[in-house]
Amino acid sequence: MRGSLNKIAAILWKDIRSEWRSKEFFSAMFIFAALTIFVFNFAFELHISNRKAVVPGIMWVAFAFAGELGLSRSFALEQDKGSFSGLLLAPGDRSAIYVAKALGNILFMLVSEAFLLPMIMALFNVNLANTTILLTVLAGTIGFASVGTLISAIAVNTRAREVLLPVLLFPVVLPVLIAAVYLTSGALNGASAAELAGWWKLLLTYDLFFIVLSVMVFDFVVEE
């Protein structure tokens, strides 16, 4: 147990340091998501009078695109530099690699979202700073990145990996996106806690269920 925790911490710390030096994930994710938001702004502005109706959708599409971009680099960098075999050779449980990578992806996504949220608030003139929305962002990001990390580990070992990742990822994470969009729009439009309870259950069930499943099957994905 102690060994696994050390391994997780070591891999996570390595990822954070390399990201801090290159800002490679962050710049790609943030710029791309910002671009998505701008495009939506032009596409919708003339037709929608009620911004509260479209902002949750725009926000989560932007987060999902940013997240997908981040995920695509998560294992690709290791693969390209040849350091993935090193990770596999490291002693200890291999699911520790999954946990560390997933935590890193969640962290990078949350950092980008922390920059994107105020931008969305300013551009669309809506107030997103409330507890329900922030918790939704957290739970949604955890679900998205945990499944995404596993699928990214699959996609990176295929031909045409950049094409395959979104194709594999988006249909699987659809429940997360639907629940997150609904919770966000519910919180924006003043829905009661009882109305949102079903969505919380769905989102948390998905998070828990798919994290457990990912940890269980990760060994099969990286088995060489």
Partner: peptide, 19 residues
Amino acid sequence: FAAVYGLFSFLSIPLTLIS
């Protein structure tokens, strides 16, 4: 890969329906 992805797909279908 296919087995893992098939498992994930099959489990996410009921969740999609519920959502």
